[in-house]
Design a protein around this nucleic acid. Structure first.
Lengths: 214, 214
DNA sequence: TTGCTAAGACCGACCAGTCGGTTTGTTCAA
DNA sequence: TTGAACAAACCGACTGGTCGGTCTTAGCAA
């Protein structure tokens, strides 16, 4: 934590500390010390500790939305779009890992005004996934009897929860986990036709299908 | 909050407040006021605010484990066991709703010693589900190519996440959600044979299959 | 009288945020 | 080229308020 711009240093230091001790388990004093600066430096860049928390939230959710939207635009079919979004979101876990923990653990402590902004964006993300699923149902790729909103939340839940157990240095790589998630999700909502289409398309893109070891 | 034993009143009051404002967003003073007692009353029953948090965690996770174990013992086949455990866990959301929120939101703030005890129990629960899945794979009910540990965490994640969006007075009943979850999970991990077996058995137990509206 | 339960005034540590200041960088007139 | 004038970046001692926890006292049942 040295040469970078001070604001960035503060963000990274706080993130690391928040992840370990929670927002309320960390004092501004500690952040300032880890970032190698002072109270003055901190309050020069942030109006308050609350604002810092908000900024962490906003950086993260904005990035996730951007990635999802890009993926949506990149592909044409619901299946490819869904797989792509899964893939991109899973990958965020590697890069933005500390952000994620703070995002899901501490959002309760956002001030009301900030919380509203974040919830708005969170909803935007949800709606994009739901849209992909609905389009897939219309096209016959996904089973129509599954309520799209519940399916959406299931998928989001399944992935999001991994922030609780996934460890970068654990036995499972993020790619492995992503492949299994894709497999599970496709099997859970795709129709027969959708499933075969999916395995064809994913083969084209060089994505691994999970297979029995023996 | 009146007639009941004071300890229970304190628990319920704190739960309600924690759910709304988070552990650190609530003072002992507020708890005491809502429970219609005093600091003296509070510290007579709890060594500290931390201990109260621990007790909330413990009551919840112990109940969940007990229910899961009972369900395991009640049924014979992996499919019935899994469906039963889903059902019982989903139902906990209605009864123990405030506990769940606190459990998943505030466990970061448990003191190290307490945290260890809770993690131990949490693991116990995870292993029970994983066991059912592995037994199902051996029996040919569940697809063998799916890693049991990831499947377990997917299922847990899917269900757990619903504490973030499920509302008791929302448009979706807990039974509806549970039915959809069961459908999604079975489709995601069951084999062809497992699926047909599941629909037969669930029909016997009077559980609804989800169907297209039109 | 004894012993459990509870009341509530009080304490002291802790911590977000302030404020008067210094240092560093930038601009521009002479 | 210089250095005066200004501004932005950064420092850290201090404060005011908050809140978990203590302690003395009081009610009351047995």
């Amino acid at each position: 934590m040295e040469k970078k711009a001070l604001k960035q240093r503060i963000l990274e230091s706080s993130l690391e500390l928040f992840q370990k001790n929670g927002y309320h388990g960390v004092t501004v004093e500690q952040i300032v010390e880890k970032a190698n600066t002072s109270k003055g430096g901190f309050y020069h860049y942030f109006k308050s500790k609350d604002e810092l928390l908000y900024e962490i939230h906003d950086v993260f959710i904005s990035y996730v939305i951007k990635k999802a939207q890009e993926t949506y635009d990149e592909y044409e079919t619901p299946i490819l779009r869904l797989c792509g979004m899964l893939h991109s979101f899973i990958k965020v876990f590697d890069v933005y890992n500390p952000y994620i923990t703070v995002f899901y653990q501490e959002s309760a402590y956002l001030q009301a005004a900030y919380k509203e902004v974040i919830n708005e964006k969170r909803d935007q993300y949800r709606k994009l996934i739901e849209r992909v699923i609905k389009e897939g149902q219309e096209r016959g790729d996904f089973r129509r009897e599954v309520p799209a909103n519940i399916a959406t939340m299931s998928i989001i839940g399944m992935i999001n929860w991994s922030y609780k157990w996934y460890k970068r240095d654990g036995p499972l790589s993020i790619e492995q986990i992503g492949d299994v998630f894709r497999d599970l999700i496709l099997h859970s909502i795709a129709t027969e036709e959708g499933l075969t289409e999916a395995s064809e398309q994913n083969q084209l893109l060089g994505k691994k299908e999970i297979v029995s070891e023996k």
